[in-house]
């Protein structure tokens, strides 16, 4: 068990594993997207309060979930690199950050598109929206640090510390924002994510969430492959790999 884990923590084996897995992940997620979209857009009934606008949920909620999951992945990668000195952690953290940032932005924008017809305004300083916005800035800080430090390894190590500091701070930020938003406003008008949801709406949501998740994993693996190639430029196995791909295309 540990032997296999250890094997795939080495960049070379992880690269091969990632290459084998990505087509499957892309394929399955695209099929799930198809099913989820048909179910969510055609088969699920319109919400009795929100009408057809509730269908934004199938984009908004999966991307909001992913925005948090990606930070966990990033901080987990950072912890792997900091605590156990596993180089793969750096690769994963750097691969996850831009994905996390883009899904956070998507969640915010689709949230605004949903908020406008529901609340009559693009933005409310509701605890969840505000926390999501701050999450975006945490991602942007990580990305800015990565681009400011030229040496890739040094940047990844500094980023690992930042990601771990961030994950400790996220609950603190979230709960202080919750406290702040309940203090200054009367009970917020949150219609989103009502506790009970009809099964006919929930199942497509879960399918879409699963599709997003798999697509994210596929993207993560592709980006990790790029990072590995850059990190390991000088490694012998990369040179062998390049030679092989070169010959297969017949450019020599």
């Amino acid at each position: 068990m540990f032997k296999t884990l250890h094997k795939y923590a080495s960049p070379m084996h992880f690269f091969a594993l990632a290459r084998a897995l990505t087509p499957w992940l892309f394929g399955i997620s695209l099929v799930l997207f198809g099913v989820g979209l048909v179910w969510g857009l055609f088969l699920a009934p319109a919400d009795y309060q929100q009408g057809e606008s509730f269908r934004i949920i199938y984009v908004h909620v999966p991307s909001a979930w992913l925005s948090m999951f990606a930070y966990l992945v990033m901080a987990g990668g950072g912890a792997l690199s900091l605590v156990w000195k596993i180089k793969l952690g750096d690769v994963i953290a750097r691969a996850a950050a831009p994905l996390g940032a883009s899904f956070t932005a998507l969640a915010l924008v689709t949230g605004a598109l949903w908020g406008k017809p529901m609340w009559g305004t693009w933005w409310v300083w509701d605890a969840r929206l505000t926390s999501e916005l701050l999450l975006l800035f945490l991602y942007l800080g990580y990305l800015a640090l990565q681009s400011a430090i030229e040496d890739r390894r040094a940047a990844a190590r500094a980023g690992a510390v930042l990601a771990v500091v961030g994950i400790v701070n996220i609950p603190i930020i979230h709960y202080s924002v919750v406290w702040w938003s309940t203090l200054h406003q009367p009970a917020t008008i949150t219609k989103m994510g009502a506790p009970t949801m009809a099964t006919s709406m929930l199942i497509p949501l879960l399918i879409m969430a699963f599709a997003f998740q798999l697509f994210f994993l596929a993207l993560l693996l592709v980006r990790a492959r790029c990072e590995i190639l850059e990190f390991e430029q000088r490694a012998q196995w990369v040179k062998t790999l390049l030679g092989a791909s070169d010959q297969s295309r017949g450019t020599r």
């Binding site: 057809e52 606008s53 908004h60 883009s102 899904f103 689709t110 949903w114 697509f215 596929a218 993207l219």
Partner: peptide
């Protein structure tokens, strides 16, 4: 709600596709 639903889906496709 077309002007809200379709941009949301469009942006979703854009983000996923562009990342890929």
């Amino acid at each position: 709600y077309a002007s809200f639903v379709w941009p949301a889906y469009g942006l979703g496709v854009l983000v996923l596709g562009l990342n890929g």
